[in-house]
Computed example of a mutant assay.
Amino acid sequence: MRLNGWIIYNGHLPGNKFLDFAEWLQKAAARKDVPAKIWKNNELLSFLTADEVILIDDDEQLLPNFVIFTDKDIYLANQLEQMGVRVYNCSDAIRISDDKILTYQALSIHNLPIPKTIIAPKIFMNNVEVDHATCDKAVTTLGLPMIVKEAFGSFGEQVYLVHTAQELKEKVAMLQGKPFMFQEFIDSSYGKDMRLHVVGDEVVAAMMRTASDDFRANVTAGGTMESYQPTPKENEIAIAATKAIGADFAGVDLLFGADGHPIICELNSNAHIRNMYDCTKINVADYIIDYIVDKEK
């Protein structure tokens, strides 16, 4: 039986980079003679009754053999799984990856190297008096400067470097109602990190990212990139981290530890691949499609 798939991206996000990612995957699938239809998530409505779990769409198409889910709409991903469709990455991997607190908990349980992290106690609403004893304990445990990182965010935009206890208390007051964490600052990796793209049991491409005037190295935030040859240890950690969150493929960001050992910064289950291609001339989409075709045999 001939394979066919869907590629789903978010139809409400601005810009073309999300569609661009889907189109790269679609072209890679075509090179393998695997038809793959692109859908916006808002074109597929999850419909539930006491008797059925289905999708409402305009074309009433038959379900595919597989779905590549480039979005974070875990409810739609879970709906597809309930309908018997194999989703890459699965909804649980997307859920863990999207929530950085859950990510660090999964990595810690597998004894993988992460920055020392304190999870901020949950606050349900704004305009309440914050218990500053939490900040004091964070400073005592982690020192200053430190990182304050929101659980949800992309492109480094919800990550903050704070230098003083007062600045920390002001930042915590601003984040009321949002899940976040306090984290050790790895100063040996100031303005630089590495992105390793894992597919299955292999690191298929890697680059180093550097920023001249920011502690974050994200290319979207102005960092530069160059091709990078990871060490065996870096490869091992990136692959183990991907498996720890239950993902089939992921972009794994590693920091340069002071002792030369890599430290996991973040994982992205939907890591875009154009920058990686521009930097390394390696098309990660081809590896993802090869992996899926092999799994679906």
Rank of each mutant, 00 (worst) to 15 (best):
C279E: 03
T224W: 11
T141A: 15
E129V: 14
K27N: 15
I186G: 11
I237W: 03
L55A: 13
Y9V: 00
G191P: 12
G222M: 07
N89Q: 04
N89D: 02
S46P: 13
E150A: 13
Y75K: 12
G223I: 03
E202N: 13
Q229G: 01
K17W: 11
I263H: 06
F124G: 13
L142R: 00
G191F: 06
I114P: 05
V130C: 11
L19E: 11
L44C: 07
N10S: 07
K32P: 01
V198W: 05
I118L: 09
D294A: 07
G200N: 07
D201E: 07
A217S: 12
S212N: 14
E52G: 06
G11K: 00
T103I: 10
H163F: 10
M174F: 10
A77S: 10
K297N: 00
D248M: 06
I289L: 15
Y104I: 03
F180N: 03
C279Q: 00
D33K: 06
F249M: 10
D248C: 06
F152K: 07
P179F: 05
M181V: 01
W24F: 13
Q79N: 15
A28F: 06
M174Y: 13
I114E: 03
Q166F: 07
Q61Y: 09
I109L: 12
E129D: 09
D131L: 04
S91E: 02
N270F: 08
P113W: 03
C279Y: 08
Y104K: 05
R209Y: 05
K297E: 10
E157Q: 15
C135Y: 06
K233I: 13
K100W: 00
A211S: 15
E226C: 10
V172G: 00
H12L: 13
H197R: 00
L102D: 04
K100R: 08
F249S: 09
E23H: 05
V203Q: 01
M207R: 13
K243D: 02
A206P: 03
D59A: 12
K295C: 14
F249T: 04
F47N: 15
A151R: 01
G143P: 05
D278R: 10
T210L: 14
G156C: 02
I288K: 02
